[in-house]
Design a protein around this nucleic acid. Structure first.
Lengths: 340, 340
DNA sequence: GTGAAAGCGCTAACAC
DNA sequence: GTGTTAGCGCTTTCAC
C-alpha cells in the first residue's frame, strides 16, 4: 500500500490559485507567463500560491483558448531496427527546440491506421508522415483540412512538403560496384510494395542491371528483419546467385547467417549487400548504403515548424544524399576490418 | 505554387456540422460517437455532413469537457541505440491498444528537463519515467499532484509503481562466468552516476569480485556509445586487464575496435563483455546480457493504464529477469559462431 | 430521439 | 496593474 500516503492534491485550477493569491484568474494567467503587465510582487505572490497548490495549467484549456496545441506528431510504420528510431530521434530533438511536444504514432501495418492518424491530427498543429503508413488519400484529406504536413521517405503529394533520401540512384551505384566485382547473377530481397524506399532500391538495381544488359531478377518479398532475411535466403541461395542485394541491413544480416549455416563463404561464394549501415553492418563486414536518418527527422521537424509558422510558403521537396560503405561482403578487397 | 491549390477548408467545428445536418450540436456529438440515443437515419445524416466538411473533432475541446486527455507520456534520456527505442516501442504498442496516444519526451541530459516533464504532465493522463532523466523530487511532486506514474529502470519512489530489469544479480553472474574463465584483473567501463542501470551493473561486478577476494577496479566513466568505449579503452587497455566489463554493448564494441587497432586479440589477450544484446553483439561475437526491453515498455504501459483506471490500487514493483548470452568475447569456448 | 444550456480551464479583449 | 467577461469546441445533464 502507499507507504507515505501521498496527499493526492487533485489538480488545482487557475481559480484556486487566484483565490489563494487574492487576485483574479486573469492576473494568475499573466503572472504565470511572466507578463510584465503584472507587478513583481503580485507575480511572486501568484507564483507562491501556484507552487503551494502544485498548480499545473491544463494544456487542454490552454490549447482551446489559444487555438493551438503546441505539439506535433510523427507517424511511422514501426520502431523496430535503428532506422525509424533515428529518424524519430532527430525529429523529437528539433521539434523540442521549437518548443513543441511530440506525439508518436506507430501504425504497425494496422489497417485502421487512417483512423489513428485522423485522431492524431486532432491533437497537433502539424505532423510528419513516414513511408508506408497511410495512403495518399489520407494525406490529401489532411492537407485539404489545412493541417501542416511533411512527408518523409514517401512519394510527394501535390502541395505537401516532402523529404526523402536517395534510393534509386544509390542503388544504381551499388549495382555498378557489384558488377565491377564481376558479379552477374543477382537476387533482390525485399518487398517493393511494402515501402517506397524498398521500391526505389529495387528500381535502381533493375536500372543498373538493364544498363549492363543483364537479366533482371524478380524481387523476393520478405519481412524486413533478421528472420525474414534468413528465411528468404534459404530458397534464394539454392539458385546460387553471385550477389544478393537486400532491402536493408537486417535482411542482409539474415542472409549472412543463412549462408554461414549453409557453409557458404561471403563474399567468395556469394556477395551480400544491405542498406542503412546499422551498427551490426560494421561488425559483420557488410557493404551497405548509409543514409542520414537523423537529419531526415530533424529536417522534417524544422520544415514542419516553418510551415506551421507560415502556411503560405511554397512547397518544398528535398532528397538527401546517401553514401556507399564498401566492406567485405560485396567481393574481395584489401582488408577492410575496422573500417567505418 | 501549390499545384492543385488545396482548398484549405479551415477545420470545421461541431457547430458547422450541426448546421449542415440540420440538428443540434448535442446530436452531432452523440451521433459521431455512435450513441444509440440517435436514430440510424440521423446518424447517417450527421456522418455525411461531417464527412463533407472534413470534420475532425478538436481534441482540446474533448479533453476539456471529458476531463481527460486519452494520452500518456514516456520520458527517456535519449533514443540513441536500440535500448530506449525498444522500450518506447513496447510502450507505444501497448498504450495504443488501450486507445491512448503517446507523447514522447527525450531529456537529452538537459537540465531544464524538469520543466519539460512538468509541461508534459499537463497533457497526459499519466506517464512513464525512465532512468536518469529527472530527479526524485520531480517524481514526488507529480505523484503528489495525483498524476498516475510508472517508473522504468530507476530506483523506486514511495507510492509509485516501478519496473526494472535485473542488473546487480546478473552482473554477479556475469562476473562468476568471467572468473571461471580464469580472469582475475578486471576493468569496468561506464559511469555509475549516469544511470541507475549502470550503477547496478557496477555494484554487481564489485560484489562478484569481493566474494572472490579480488581487487575491485574503479569504474571508468565514458560515454555510452561506440566512440565513448573506444576512447576509454585506449587508456584501460594499457593496464592489460584480463577482462573489461562494459556498461552496454556499444561501449563494448568500441573496446572491440580499440583492441583490434592495438593488435590485441579478443578473447586471447583480453576478454570483453557488454550489456543489452544488440544486433551487432551477435555479429561481433560479444558476450552480453539480454534484457527484455520491449516487455519493459509494454508492462509499463499496461500498469499505467491500470493505475489510471484505478488510482487506488496497491503499489507494484517488478524486476524482469535477464539472460546471459555467452559468445566468443569472454574467453575460449567451443565455436559459438551464429549462436543466438 | 433531440435540443438547450451549463460547464470543462484557460486566454485575451476590454474596462476600470 | 488588475478585474470582468466572452469565448475556444466539446460533452453531458436535464427538459421536452
Amino acid at each position: 500500500m502507499a507507504m507515505k500516503a501521498l496527499s493526492k492534491t487533485k489538480a488545482a485550477t487557475i481559480y484556486e490559485v487566484a483565490a489563494r493569491a487574492g487576485v483574479s484568474i486573469a492576473t494568475v494567467s499573466r503572472a504565470l507567463r511572466d507578463s510584465d503587465l503584472v507587478t513583481v510582487e503580485t507575480r511572486a505572490r501568484v507564483r507562491e500560491a501556484a507552487e503551494a497548490l502544485h498548480f499545473m495549467p491544463s494544456r487542454a484549456g490552454r490549447s482551446l483558448a489559444e487555438g493551438r496545441h503546441a505539439a506535433n506528431g510523427i507517424v511511422f510504420p514501426d520502431l523496430v531496427g535503428p532506422y525509424y528510431a533515428e529518424v524519430v530521434l532527430g525529429y523529437e530533438e528539433t521539434a523540442a527546440e521549437f518548443g513543441g511536444s511530440v506525439l508518436i504514432l506507430a501504425t504497425h501495418g494496422r489497417r485502421d491506421a487512417a483512423a489513428a492518424v485522423r485522431d492524431l491530427a486532432g491533437r497537433v498543429d502539424g505532423m510528419a508522415i513516414m513511408g508506408h503508413t497511410v495512403g495518399d488519400d489520407v494525406v490529401e484529406r489532411l492537407a485539404a483540412r489545412g493541417l501542416p504536413l511533411v512527408l518523409i521517405a514517401r512519394p510527394p503529394v501535390a502541395g505537401v512538403d516532402t523529404i526523402r533520401t536517395r534510393n534509386e540512384r544509390s542503388a544504381v551505384e551499388l549495382t555498378a560496384h557489384l558488377l565491377a566485382h564481376g558479379h552477374r547473377r543477382f537476387a533482390f530481397l525485399g518487398d517493393p510494395a511494402v515501402s517506397p524506399d524498398v521500391a526505389g532500391r529495387y528500381t535502381g538495381l533493375v536500372r543498373g542491371l538493364r544498363r549492363a544488359g543483364l537479366d533482371v531478377p524478380a524481387a523476393v518479398p520478405c519481412d524486413m528483419n533478421l528472420d525474414g532475411g534468413q528465411a528468404a535466403a534459404a530458397a534464394v541461395l539454392r539458385d546460387r546467385p553471385d550477389a544478393i542485394v537486400c532491402a536493408n541491413d537486417e535482411v542482409a544480416l539474415g542472409v549472412h547467417l543463412a549462408a554461414e549455416a549453409a557453409g557458404l563463404d561471403i563474399p567468395a561464394d556469394v556477395a551480400v549487400t544491405g542498406w542503412d549501415d546499422v551498427l551490426a553492418a560494421r561488425f559483420a563486414g557488410l557493404t551497405t548504403v548509409r543514409q542520414p536518418m537523423r537529419e531526415l527527422g530533424s529536417t522534417a521537424a524544422r520544415w514542419l515548424h516553418e510551415r506551421i509558422t507560415d502556411p503560405s510558403r511554397p512547397e518544398r521537396r528535398r532528397i538527401l544524399p546517401t553514401r556507399l560503405h564498401v566492406r567485405r561482403s560485396c567481393g574481395n578487397h584489401p582488408s577492410e576490418i575496422g573500417r567505418p
